[in-house]
């Protein structure tokens, strides 16, 4: 199955700080936990690690656990992991389910650092999971989705 835009999410943000600082904020596990709203007993991220994280997000998922499998750490450039997206929402056994790939890319930009996050592999997810995640979140969804955006604008 060729991967296509419809199976991938891409989000970007400009951060007014040097690349080294942004890299640290994303890959130092203590700093990561701060903005990702999680806590972890692990001392550090390293490629190949299976990292247990606990959500500190207030609400129904508070204190629920999930895991990320670190794939790549290329200094100040690429940080990636595989996981079961939004797995805290369902609390079911996902060990046999395919995972999506999350990739952070850092680039120098005018006045700071451009951070691009892509998440891909949604076509591989178990159908029941998609339906479940859908059902749990419908109310909060309002943002434009990059993948079908082009489709909807072309269709007009």
């Amino acid at each position: 199955m060729p991967s296509s835009q419809t199976n991938q999410i891409e989000r970007k943000t400009m951060i007014r700080a040097p690349r080294s600082r942004v890299w640290q904020a994303i890959t130092d596990i203590r700093q990561f936990c701060q903005w990702f709203s999680t806590e972890s007993a692990e001392p550090a991220f390293r490629p190949g690690a299976h990292v247990r994280l606990i959500s500190t997000h207030q609400g129904p998922y508070y204190k629920m656990e999930f895991f990320i499998d670190i794939v790549e750490m290329a200094a100040e450039h690429t940080f990636s992991w595989r996981w079961h997206p939004a797995s805290v929402l369902t609390g079911e056994d996902l060990s046999k389910e395919p995972m999506t790939l999350v990739v952070f890319r850092l680039e120098d930009a005018e006045g700071g650092t451009l951070v691009t996050v892509t998440e891909s592999g949604f076509d591989q997810l178990f159908p029941s999971r998609i339906a479940k995640v859908l059902g749990e979140n419908e109310a909060g969804w309002k943002y434009q989705m990059a993948a079908l955006e082009r489709y909807f604008s072309d269709a007009k």
Binding site: A86, E119, V133, N137, W141
Partner: peptide, 13 residues
């Protein structure tokens, strides 16, 4: 499909 990916996108934002 759009709603599913929007939910994930929003979390990333």
């Amino acid at each position: 499909a759009r709603a599913f990916l929007e939910g994930i996108s929003e979390r990333w934002d």
